[in-house]
Amino acid sequence: MPFLEIEGLIFNYEDMHMRFDLAVEAGECVGIVGPSGAGKSTLLSLIGGFEKPLAGTIRVGGEDITRLPPAERPVTTLFQDFNLFPHLSVAENVGLGRNPGLKLDAADQEQVAWSLRQVGLDGFEARLPGQLSGGERQRVALARSLIRHRPLLLLDEPFAALGPALRVEMLELTDLLRKAQGLTVLLVTHDPNEAARIATRTAFIAEGEVALFGTTDEVLRSDNAAVREYLGR
């Protein structure tokens, strides 16, 4: 049985009608590519619980999560930007993942320190987001994702604003954490190279549907007209 199962998930946004079906195995990293406006981010929003589908089901580990509020889903989402509260310190931003009212006990503090070590930011606890680089801010957000201990990690173009070298570094860090923590990862990206680097399989989304789903290599080399147009081949 697949770890993440999406069946007949229907959603309308303005004039666009979407219908998603997708099955992802536990521990996989799946890339999600496609032209802008095709519905990539909407798919992630539906899984994260930020949009309500008109019909269909989302199951994680066999459990139906379609109607659960975002915080109760076994899912954590990393956005492209604005993952941190600008007036809270790094430790507080991460600590929110343990307690949304920031009432942190010694064990929680220990967890915060642990997760910051995982992303290579130990010693950054007291800083404010404004004092960090873009890459460091996303590391803090990753640390909070870790501390929430949710098996499914959704990444919505999280490194798109970073330079090429930093982007590769962050992708590798993400992949490392996936293996170490046994996470299942969905990575929305507009850059096929990102998918090629860490995604074992890739879904190509076009016009509100999963048009193609297979190994990343297969999808990127496919003769499908939409894929060719998207890649400019």
Binding site: F50, A71, T77, L96
Partner: peptide, 12 residues
Amino acid sequence: ETWRLTAQLGMS
């Protein structure tokens, strides 16, 4: 994104 974050973190 901030409001989504508050929902994800389960803030009351």
